[in-house]
């Protein structure tokens, strides 16, 4: 039992299980699955699908935070990537012609959107590594300017995507499962594999625990940190594609709004230390699922969805305080001398 509680994924797993149990009690059909037209349907599948963009962004964020960084521009990068893809695919509603055409081939649009997202990430990384800015400020610049850039790309309009194949990214199914969820799972699994099978994971930890010591120990901290920011931008780009495909449009103002905060929350819930070093990608994925399940729960309980923000804030406070050694020491002291 003790070993179980000590397991780093114990708390996220328990939280998720409790949330799902709460849903199952309130809504008996919650856990049901249905196989229809060769696709799997059900509330849990829906949660997986909806959590995919957040899980992807949070995965990139985990690595950046693990190396003592932070990227608050991911929401803006989501908007930019969605805007680029939407503008390049474009297409107008042609009623007679069911085979709507895209302005550029879809693969080119996707590649361009991802390339620009990667460039955004590398720009952040260059500011942090090259110029030596504090991560929050370096990424604040893109957070402020990024939505302006996205609006520049879309011309201030909400661009609707009429090209049917593009909808597959956010709404399609692969082997009966939602494509977005499969994609997110694959990315997380590959990243995890890359980090655990190569020394890269160790390097990231070392940079997070002590950047100076890591450099002196011969770890090429700068290129690695730069690559992590680039990776984070790239994943935000993928999330942007999924989000825009899901709603078949790109809204420069609202796509990915507050996503950076949700991503940080997912990372924190997953047990990654915000001070760097200790991280868990699986934990982050669980964190993203917790946030999405919480959202679904709030809807299904009939609580006004606006309360969601307060719930999230309460979660952040609890996790944050539990991570603080001072707070835990205070609790221990209270427990030892009751009434004192």
């Amino acid at each position: 039992m003790r070993a179980l509680v000590r397991w780093h994924l114990f708390w996220p797993c328990l939280t998720l299980a409790l949330l799902i149990a709460l849903n199952a009690v309130v809504n008996p059909g919650f856990l049901a699955f249905e196989w229809r037209d060769g696709h799997l349907y059900g509330n849990l599948v829906d949660i997986l699908n909806r959590a995919a963009p957040l899980a992807l962004v949070a995965t990139g964020m985990t690595l950046v935070i693990a190396a003592r960084g932070l990227d608050i521009s991911v929401g803006a990068v989501v908007a930019i990537s969605a805007a680029v893809a939407a503008v390049m695919i474009g297409g107008s509603l042609s009623l007679g012609d069911a085979e709507a055409v895209s302005r550029f081939p879809m693969w080119l649009a996707i590649l361009a959107a991802l390339a620009i997202a990667l460039a955004c990430g590398l720009w952040n990384g260059a500011l942090v590594v090259g110029v030596g800015m504090q991560p929050i400020i370096a990424t604040l610049i893109l957070m402020v300017a990024g939505r302006g850039v996205a609006q520049l790309v879309t011309g201030g309009q909400i661009i609707t995507i009429y090209y049917p194949p593009y909808a597959y990214l956010g709404n399609g199914f692969l082997a009966g499962l939602p494509f977005a969820a499969v994609l997110a799972a694959a990315v997380i699994a590959l990243t995890q594999l890359l980090l655990s099978r190569t020394p890269l994971g160790l390097y990231v930890r070392a940079i997070g625990i002590n950047p100076v010591a890591a450099r002196i120990a011969g770890i090429r901290a700068k290129p690695i940190t730069l690559a992590l920011y680039g990776f984070c931008g790239l994943l935000a780009g993928v999330a942007g594609l999924i989000v825009s495909s899901n709603v078949r449009s790109a809204d420069a103002n609202n796509a990915g709004q507050l996503l950076e905060l949700d991503a940080i929350l997912a990372v924190t819930l997953g047990g990654t230390a915000l001070t760097g070093g200790r991280f868990s990608l699986v934990g982050t994925a669980l964190g993203a699922l917790i946030i999405q399940t919480l959202t679904t729960t709030i809807y299904s309980l009939g609580v006004p969805p606006e309360v969601n923000l307060v719930f999230k804030a309460a979660l952040i406070f609890i996790v944050m305080l539990l991570q603080s050694p001072e707070f835990r020491a205070g609790i221990v002291r209270l427990a030892r001398q009751p009434g004192a």
Partner: peptide
């Protein structure tokens, strides 16, 4: 919270942002 529990100002005020905005909606 920032001083007593040595929490990062960024995270504490981020949560504060959620609380205040959520209370608005309430």
């Amino acid at each position: 919270l920032i001083h007593r529990y040595r929490l990062q100002p960024f995270i504490v005020t981020l949560a504060g942002m959620f609380v205040a905005r959520g209370l608005c909606y309430l």
